[in-house]
Simulated scan of single mutants.
Amino acid sequence: MNFAGIDIGSRSIELVVVDEDEQIVSALQADTGFDPITEAEKLTEQCDFDRIMATGYGRNLFEISFDAPTVTEIKAHALGAKTLFPEAGAILDIGGQDTKAISLFANGKIRKFEMNDRCAAGTGKFLEIMAGALGFTIDEFGRQALLAEKELSISSMCTVFAESEVTSLIAGGENRHEIALGLHASVMRRAASMISRVCPEGAIVFTGGVAKNPCMITLLEEKLGQKLLVPDDPQLVGALGAALLSKGK
């Protein structure tokens, strides 16, 4: 038998299928778009599985459409991260439109968590908008920020005000790499504060789309004073956890 987990987020959808030995046999991803259920259905049609469990923002819509059980993002990410990294003591997940900080007991049970899903500030969407304002693609944004010799302080974390501030800084002749580093540092400080408040013990797993950003990894490691554990596919962790839960783990 095969077991699937689907993570329907605000920006993307991930589907992971595991076998009886809990090995990943399929992993797919698509943009959420304006019709997440149709996109989710397209992904499910590409894989063979016997049971499926949903997580993420769209999990309740999926439950109604597919008569499938659901699990919270917190629980799914905790299990997915602990499975990939048994030494994990905490998870920092920065996605498109939310940030989660989760600390774990040694047995993998959730100890404490915080979640910011009320504002785009400090999320992947914030970085995407700021990258565009500076003329960078989101994929190159982190690498370009690391080229700065110093950080240019950004006073606002509100996406609208920050974009206006960036525009003013560019018009004033400021170095865009230094602006980029300042923006990354602002996001890093917010994320580091969240992970610190959940009182992590041991290794920290960094997940979500922003975990692909080399500048965020570098700044967080410097701030937290430890090496972060980053999965090869950091966006798949929630879907992996849901797949394992659908198996009954």
Rank of each mutant, 00 (worst) to 15 (best):
F3D: 00
D7K: 03
S10F: 01
R11N: 11
L15I: 03
V16M: 08
D19R: 00
E20F: 05
D21C: 10
D31W: 13
G33I: 08
A40W: 05
A40D: 01
T44S: 05
Q46H: 04
F49I: 06
I52M: 14
I52N: 02
A54H: 00
T55Q: 03
S65R: 05
D67G: 14
L79A: 07
K82G: 03
T83S: 14
L84N: 11
A90H: 06
I91H: 04
G95R: 00
K100L: 12
R111G: 10
E114K: 15
C119F: 09
K125T: 14
F126Q: 06
A133C: 14
G135V: 09
F136S: 01
T137I: 04
T137G: 13
D139M: 11
F141N: 01
A145L: 12
E151V: 06
L152S: 05
S153I: 12
C158P: 03
T159I: 08
V160W: 11
V166G: 14
E174D: 12
R176G: 09
H177G: 02
A180L: 10
L181Y: 04
G182Y: 08
G182W: 12
A192V: 08
R197N: 12
A203I: 02
C215K: 00
T218W: 08
L219I: 10
L219C: 10
L220G: 03
L229F: 07
P231I: 09
P234F: 07
L236A: 13
L240Y: 03
G241C: 01
G241S: 07
G248K: 06
K249A: 15
K249M: 14
